[in-house]
């Protein structure tokens, strides 16, 4: 099957000489939910800028659903919908006009554009706000408006650059559900995010970019399996004994009701539960100390793992 996105040896050197991308190669399969991660300035937004033509590449090739951008960029652009990091619409225009106009730029007849705008503004909970100037919308609503705008021509590849930045938790969860539905319906999604929990919850495959180079490109599952050590936090409903010792595990008592236990690869967490049971500890809840992907990410960009 033709990949949704194929990037080969992509380089970008800005006018001031800064090499933002140093020959990255990447392939995103059709139907994938793909995460592009990296610290600030790593080259994520430059990559996305090149894909959607806001940044001119210095070297390399890029194809979208088999269409090379050097041969027919307009055809490639029809496949792409992009949700940028910064708000990039006229804040004096109404939401409905922004979405309908965007459909017009893709050549959709006016009636169809209006139908699509209604469909996506309703799906994203903005239909009641369609007639007010977009500057009056909340930050979360503005982000959803940009998603509706990106979807109005029903692209096969949706690119989201930090879509949930500054969005409250409830809104973020509802956006996740929406994106999962879009992906399940067949739209390939590429996501950049700083919320690694978001990438772990949504994405199947992942590329980590650092200093303009891809340092990891694999499935989220394969990446997480590389973790050698995870730290869990146990909350107890009764008071913990003063000395908690579990053979084979590094244990740290945080306070009377909180315990940190490090579990090495190959060890089983059941052993921890059994030991705590023996000590009379009533475990009320358990969670990862840090997001698992976050640990991997830090390891990779710091050159540890």
């Amino acid at each position: 099957m033709i990949p949704a996105l194929q990037i080969e040896n992509l380089c970008k050197v800005y006018a001031d000489g800064f090499a933002a991308l140093k020959g990255i190669s990447l392939q995103v399969e059709q139907g994938d939910f793909f995460a592009l991660l990296g610290p600030n300035g790593a080259g994520k937004s430059t990559t996305i800028g090149i894909i959607c033509s806001l940044v001119a590449k210095t070297q390399g090739s890029l194809s979208v659903f088999g269409v090379n951008i050097d041969e027919d960029f307009p055809a490639a652009k029809k496949f792409i919908g992009v949700v940028p990091q910064e708000f990039n619409f006229n804040q004096f225009e109404k939401g409905i006009d922004i979405v309908v106009n965007q459909a017009g730029y893709y050549g959709l007849p006016r009636e169809l554009a209006k139908e699509r705008a209604e469909k996506y503004l309703k799906a994203l909970g903005l239909w009641d706000k369609r007639e007010i100037p977009s500057r009056m919308l909340s930050g979360g609503m503005k982000r959803r408006l940009m998603i509706a705008r990106a979807l109005v021509h029903e692209p096969r590849l949706l690119i989201l650059d930090e879509p949930t930045a500054g969005v409250d938790i409830e809104m973020r969860r509802s956006m996740w559900d929406f994106l999962k539905k879009i992906n399940a319906a067949g739209t390939t999604i590429i996501l950049t995010t700083h919320y690694l929990e978001e990438a772990e919850a949504l994405c199947r495959n992942i590329a980590i970019i650092n200093h303009g180079e891809i340092v990891e490109n694999t499935s989220v599952r394969a990446l997480l399996s590389q973790l050698h050590r995870e730290v869990f936090i146990f909350d107890s409903s009764n008071a913990l004994p003063q000395d908690v010792v579990i053979a084979g595990f590094a244990v740290q008592r945080i306070d009377d009701h909180t315990l940190e236990v490090a579990v090495e690869k190959g060890q089983h967490i059941n052993e921890v539960f059994a030991a705590l049971n023996t000590l009379g500890v009533q475990v009320a809840s358990m969670r990862n100390k840090a997001n698992r992907l976050e640990e991997m990410f830090v390891n990779l960009v710091e050159g540890g793992a």
């Binding site: 806001l54 307009p74 652009k77 940028p84 708000f87 619409f89 006229n90 730029y105």
Partner: peptide, 18 residues
């Protein structure tokens, strides 16, 4: 210039409009 200033010109630049 307004569309450059508020970046809404990107709506056109990312689209296939010649």
């Amino acid at each position: 210039f307004g569309s450059k200033f508020n970046n809404s010109v990107e709506e056109l630049l990312v689209s296939p409009v010649p």
